[in-house]
Amino acid sequence: MELKITHLTKTFDKTTAVDQVSYTLRPGVYGLLGVNGAGKTTLMRMLTTLIKPTSGDITWDGEDIFQMDEQYRKRLGYLPQDYGAYPEFTVQEYLSYICVLKGIRPAAAGRKVKQVMEQMGLQKAKNKKMKTLSGGMKRRAGIAQAVLNDPEILILDEPTAGLDPRERIHFRNLISEMAQDRIVLLSTHIVSDVASIANEIMLMKDGRFISTGTVEALLAGSPEKAWTCRCTRSQAADLEKRYKVANVVPGTNGLTLRLLAKERPVEDAVLEETTLEDVFLSYMGERSGDADGSL
């Protein structure tokens, strides 16, 4: 069970959405972390055979996935970023239909649909039409369809976007449960979604993996360290121009800033423990606050 990407590139007209990416995935949870436009979706579409790479290869246990075609897609579960379904189908009809598309035999399909609906908490909605589902329920149906065939490769593109915090936690637990013995690749631009559950994280920017590895490895390899310091509003404005600011806490006299810097930025700054968010911001963030970097 090895999904190997070599020098994978996808170019649209002028933009290079994915640029010479190489990586090998084995069973485990992988977090693909990057701001909007980093190339996450394009990469995932290639991994799901929806688009052909401009150059480079993707192999499954040494075999080209586009050659394997159906044999590869059999192992695949995919939740697209812009996920939709047949509006007039009920949840149950929809999942039964996906079973047909996945070539699951009717005898097994009934059982599987029931089991997956239970797992995702969809039983109550099983006779509701897809078009009437709330955002959260629809996402559950989306994950449900992805796992119907017990995929060896589960690809989830921004699965938590638009979910409320409670659903987000529920969802994280689900992923952890499902991560047994399969490759789970999920993309997000929200650090906390993957910080606790991913075995490995790929930081993606402008089509490239700029840093990869376990959370610990990423923390250790961080180009900048996190510091806090107290300062006045005017000093803060000056610091924001020179450093990436992870956090601002207003106090009674002045502000407390959390800054990212290679060296101690000001005299009385205190060195803090670096978090994954700091690392993310350090790579991705523009100075004076990139909203995507901080949660």
């Binding site: 799901t48 044999q71 897609r73 695949l76 995919y78 939740l79 379904a85 047949y86 047909v100």
Partner: peptide, 18 residues
């Protein structure tokens, strides 16, 4: 239109049989 295409075409039988 229904945004169901990505799932449809990434299933084993979507491209041929379906």
């Amino acid at each position: 239109k229904w945004k169901a295409e990505a799932v449809y075409l990434s299933t084993p039988l979507g491209r041929k049989m379906a």
